[in-house]
Amino acid sequence: MGNSPTLFATDRSDRKTYIAQGRVVTDPQTLSDVGPVPDGEAIIEIPEDVLKFYALRYHEEAGN
């Protein structure tokens, strides 16, 4: 995958999904706030600017 952090849109015909790549959260307080993380999953951090970029893209694609 490319540079981190990143949010990738998948090219699925049955539903729209995203793949998140980011830095694994290791801060004990943050992990405590989130609670138990199931096996096979990780908590990652995605900066607000990445989410704003995708929100803007979605808004433009919707024609709004």
Rank of each mutant, 00 (worst) to 15 (best):
I43V: 13
S4P: 06
Y58T: 13
V50A: 13
L31W: 00
S32E: 12
H59E: 13
Y58E: 14
S32D: 11
G22W: 00
R12K: 15
P47T: 02
R57P: 01
E60H: 11
G63N: 06
D11F: 12
V34K: 05
E41V: 08
D49P: 06
E61R: 12
A55R: 14
L56I: 15
F8R: 08
R23S: 13
G2K: 06
F53A: 14
E61I: 05
I46N: 04
H59L: 12
G40A: 03
Y54E: 14
Y18A: 15
V37C: 02
T17G: 00
I46T: 07
I43R: 08
I44G: 08
V37Y: 00
S32W: 07
T30K: 07
T26M: 12
D33S: 11
D49C: 10
T6S: 09
K52Q: 10
F53I: 14
H59V: 12
A42S: 10
E61P: 06
N3S: 07
A20D: 01
Q29H: 00
S13E: 00
G2R: 04
K16I: 13
G35T: 02
D39W: 00
N3K: 03
Q29M: 06
K52H: 04
A20L: 04
G63P: 04
P36V: 06
G35A: 01
K52D: 15
E45F: 08
E60Y: 11
T26E: 12
Y18M: 05
A62F: 01
V37L: 07
E45M: 11
V50K: 12
P28R: 02
L51C: 14
D11T: 14
M1R: 04
L31C: 07
V37K: 02
I43Y: 05
Y18E: 11
R15I: 14
E61H: 09
E48Q: 14
A62E: 07
Y58W: 09
G40L: 02
A9F: 05
P5R: 10
P47Q: 03
V50R: 10
I44V: 11
T10K: 09
M1T: 03
D27N: 12
R23D: 12
E41R: 06
G40K: 03
H59A: 13
T26D: 11
I46Y: 01
D11C: 15
